[in-house]
Amino acid sequence: MCDTTTKASIFPAQPDKHELEHGNTLAPKFDENGLIPAVVTHFDDGELLMVGYMNAEALKRTIETGEAWYWSRSRQEYWKKGGTSGQIQKVCEVRTDCDQDAIWLRVRVEGNGATCHVGYHSCFYRKVESHDGNITLDLTENAPVYDPKVVYGKNE
């Protein structure tokens, strides 16, 4: 589980329902693991790029630096998107939903513009198709933008 000890000191406690939904105080509702989902879209065209998770510190770092930070659930550590690949997500706008239990980052991506760690522009590079009862995944992008083995030096 990620470290949630700084949550209280970074963001205020959840206000009453009216203030939460209509007020001007950012009071994110983190889940039982101290995380909040972050949906990431391209600022210019609205394309969905990825979904990640943030804890309070990652959200704070994102707001303060203008670059996207996340909490890696698999590695149990902070990661700045693009720290290794150069595909840094420059945050143009941060939004939250009505009950403040999700974050929406609108970004521009540096480097080659890709976001997905397996080489594609978007992490959502496949669509679900159903043909005669057979469900498959079909590519929505022609090819990866980069070779992850070259960028990360290992098989992802």
Rank of each mutant, 00 (worst) to 15 (best):
A114Y: 02
N112A: 15
D31C: 10
T84C: 10
R75P: 12
G111L: 10
P28M: 09
A13L: 07
D16Y: 00
I10R: 13
E110F: 03
W69I: 01
G113T: 09
D16I: 00
A58I: 01
A27K: 04
A102M: 08
H121K: 15
V118K: 13
S74K: 15
E93V: 00
G86Y: 08
H42P: 11
R73Y: 12
I10Q: 07
C123P: 05
Y53V: 04
W71Y: 05
G34I: 04
A102H: 00
Y120F: 13
C98Y: 05
K60L: 05
S85Q: 11
P15R: 03
E64M: 09
Q87F: 13
R106D: 01
L35C: 01
M54Y: 10
Q14I: 08
D45R: 07
D101W: 03
V94F: 00
E21C: 11
S9M: 12
I36K: 11
E110D: 09
G52I: 09
P15A: 02
S74M: 12
Y78V: 06
W104P: 00
K90G: 00
Y70D: 09
A102E: 03
V91C: 03
V39N: 14
A114I: 08
W69M: 01
S85Y: 12
E77T: 15
I88A: 15
N55V: 02
D31P: 05
G119V: 09
H22N: 07
I10K: 02
L20M: 02
A58D: 07
Q100M: 01
K81I: 03
T65A: 09
H42C: 03
Q76T: 07
V94M: 02
D45A: 11
M54Q: 08
V40H: 03
F43A: 15
I10Y: 12
G23Y: 00
Y78R: 05
Y78W: 14
K7R: 15
R108K: 14
E110M: 11
C2T: 14
G66N: 01
K80E: 11
V107A: 02
T5C: 11
A38L: 04
M54A: 06
P15F: 03
W71H: 06
S9C: 12
T6L: 13
R61F: 15
N24M: 04
Q76K: 15
G119W: 13
W79G: 04
Y120S: 06
D97L: 01
H18W: 11
I10S: 08
H121A: 02
G82R: 09
A8Y: 04
T62H: 12
P12K: 05
A27W: 02
F11W: 08
E67C: 04
T84Q: 15
Y78D: 04
R108W: 06
D3Q: 09
Q76Y: 06
G83I: 10
A13S: 14
T6K: 14
R95Y: 02
V107C: 08
I63P: 03
R108D: 13
A102K: 13
F30H: 05
H121V: 07
T65K: 06
V118Q: 08
V109I: 15
A38S: 10
V91H: 02
Y53C: 13
M1D: 13
R73A: 07
T5H: 10
